[in-house]
Simulated scan of single mutants.
Amino acid sequence: MVREPAAAGMFYPADAAILRQTVAQLLKSPEASIEAGPVKALIAPHAGYVYSGPVAGPAYAQLAAQAGTIRRVILLGPAHRAPVRGLALPEAESFATPLGEVPIDRDAIRALADMPQVVVSGAAHAQEHSLEVQLPFLQSVLRDFTLVPLAVGDATAKEVADVLEVLWGGPETLIVISSDLSHYLPYAAARQADQETVERILGYRLLDSFEQACGALPINGLLLAANRHRLAPKLVSLCNSGDTAGDRRRVVGYAAIEFMESQDSHDD
């Protein structure tokens, strides 16, 4: 069973050729550069590409050097469309975009089978855009990879972190957290609020409100796990819809943050 695209034609182009060209342009951002350490995890926004694509592009461009290594992506985002207790896996066996299908990692699904906070919900994924909009970037940068898509609903940071720990793996596994920042504040207020949120994330301080980030729950889980593994966080890009394609009276904030492996990461 294939989970068909729900956001194509709204959040990103539905035509494969146009989508491929759009993503290629976003990946060429001047902010994109290859860092010294491998990227183990990243936070990327999930609005329409015209709004948040200039922030997401540089984050995904960081992965170019690891394209031959990464074989599995653990993708977590907030459940916007259906109520979920815990973290929801899909019923589907693959996720489709105009660029093709990405298979679900069945071994990973089996590894999560005994975790009480992990459920299966086709409804949670059917119309969920937060996960889908990340896929064309991943399909454009990586080679063959499998996917573990998790729509995060009512879950504690520890419940999320425990799932990430089971799936952590090695350099073949990338973790992507899909989240926007503040919503619908005036431009200046959003800039201040989002800067404070980013500083909390970079300092491994858990978020305490969905007003800081709609993906606060998966972000907090990542912070617990990444801190334990001593990853090094770094801000790649930060702006809001008033900087890209929107009205500055009511903006949405976007950040791209990468978490890199350090020498200490391998001392456990």
Rank of each mutant, 00 (worst) to 15 (best):
V133T: 15
G169I: 11
P136E: 03
W168P: 07
L142M: 08
T156W: 09
L150G: 05
L142Y: 04
L131C: 10
D154R: 13
L164W: 08
L135C: 01
L150F: 06
G153F: 12
L147R: 02
E132D: 11
E159R: 06
G170A: 14
T173D: 14
I175N: 01
E165I: 08
L147G: 07
V141F: 06
D144M: 04
E165P: 14
F137P: 11
D154S: 14
A157P: 08
F145K: 06
E172I: 00
V166R: 15
S140Y: 02
K158I: 03
R143I: 00
I175W: 00
V166Y: 12
L174Q: 06
L174K: 04
F137R: 07
V133C: 14
L147M: 13
F137Q: 04
Q127R: 08
E132P: 15
L150S: 03
V163D: 03
L135S: 02
L167M: 04
T156D: 05
K158W: 10
L142F: 05
L138E: 00
F137T: 10
K158Q: 12
P149R: 05
V166A: 14
S130Y: 12
A155E: 10
P149W: 01
L174M: 05
S130L: 12
P171A: 15
R143V: 02
A157L: 06
S140E: 14
A155T: 10
L150E: 02
V148F: 00
H129G: 00
E172W: 00
V148L: 01
V160N: 13
T146H: 09
K158H: 11
A155F: 13
L138F: 02
V133R: 09
I175V: 15
G153I: 07
L142S: 06
L138V: 02
L135G: 03
L147P: 01
W168M: 07
A157N: 08
L142Q: 03
Q134V: 08
A161L: 11
V163W: 01
L164K: 11
D154P: 11
V133I: 15
A157R: 06
P171S: 13
K158M: 08
T146V: 09
A155K: 10
H129M: 00
E172R: 00
E128R: 01
D144E: 15
R143Y: 01
S130D: 15
S140Q: 14
A161W: 11
E132T: 07
L147F: 10
E159T: 07
V141E: 04
L135W: 00
Q127E: 13
F137V: 10
Q127W: 08
D162A: 15
T173R: 12
F145Q: 05
V152K: 01
A161S: 15
V133M: 12
V152H: 03
A151I: 05
W168L: 03
P149V: 07
Q127S: 08
Q139P: 11
P149F: 02
D144Q: 12
I175C: 10
L142A: 06
E172M: 01
S140F: 05
E132G: 09
D154M: 10
G170Q: 13
K158Y: 05
G153N: 12
P149Q: 07
Q139T: 13
T156C: 12
A151V: 04
L167S: 01
H129C: 01
V160A: 09
L147Q: 03
V141N: 04
L174V: 08
L131G: 11
G170S: 15
G153A: 13
G169D: 13
L164G: 11
E165Y: 13
Q127K: 03
K158N: 06
R143E: 14
L142E: 02
L164T: 05
V141H: 02
F137D: 04
